[in-house]
């Protein structure tokens, strides 16, 4: 069966390059699922969970804003600001991040900082949710 080559790059590093069977990504227009031989596509991603199936096993990553390109050769490139693999999520760190962000939101009045705090809160919440989910599925 034909596979999709998935590449995930963030500003700091190339996070992932692997052959997968299916990808589900959150775009600004709604969630999309990509199977092999998908039509060529160029889209914007928003903060959320990107899932992919590699040899019948489902993995997920938390991603922030970015882009996804699907080439006609079934190569999927995901370009994002930052991303975390589910196995790298530290629950305690994420919980700490939630607390910090909430505190920052109550304290600051600056519009810009407020937006930043909100974004990091959203991200941390997502990380927690995904971490809990993947733990459950393991048990």
């Amino acid at each position: 069966m034909k596979k999709i080559i998935l590449t995930v790059v963030t500003q700091e590093e190339q996070l992932l390059k692997t052959k997968v069977d299916q990808i589900t990504a959150p775009t600004v227009e709604g969630e999309i699922t990509i199977l092999p031989n998908h039509v060529a596509l160029f889209s914007k991603l928003k903060t959320g969970e990107l899932r992919y199936i590699e040899e019948t096993e489902e993995h997920s990553l938390v991603i922030s804003n970015g882009f996804i390109t699907v080439s006609p050769e079934s190569e999927v490139t995901v370009i994002v600001d930052s991303a975390t693999l589910d196995r790298n999520i530290s629950l305690s760190k994420a919980e700490q991040a939630v607390r910090d962000a909430k505190e920052a939101m109550t304290k600051t009045v600056d519009q810009r900082e407020l937006l930043m705090a909100e974004a990091s809160l959203k991200r941390a919440m997502l990380e927690i949710r995904i971490a809990q989910k993947s733990k459950k599925s393991r048990i």
Binding site: A40, S43, I79
Partner: peptide
């Protein structure tokens, strides 16, 4: 010749992409 589907519009993506390009060059 390859037809790409752009979501939302190519202009919106270009705008974003150039911003990213700017940041990346700086970084």
């Amino acid at each position: 010749k390859i037809e790409y589907i752009f979501e939302p519009s190519p202009e919106a993506i270009l705008d974003d992409l150039l911003n990213y390009y700017l940041e990346n060059t700086l970084y």
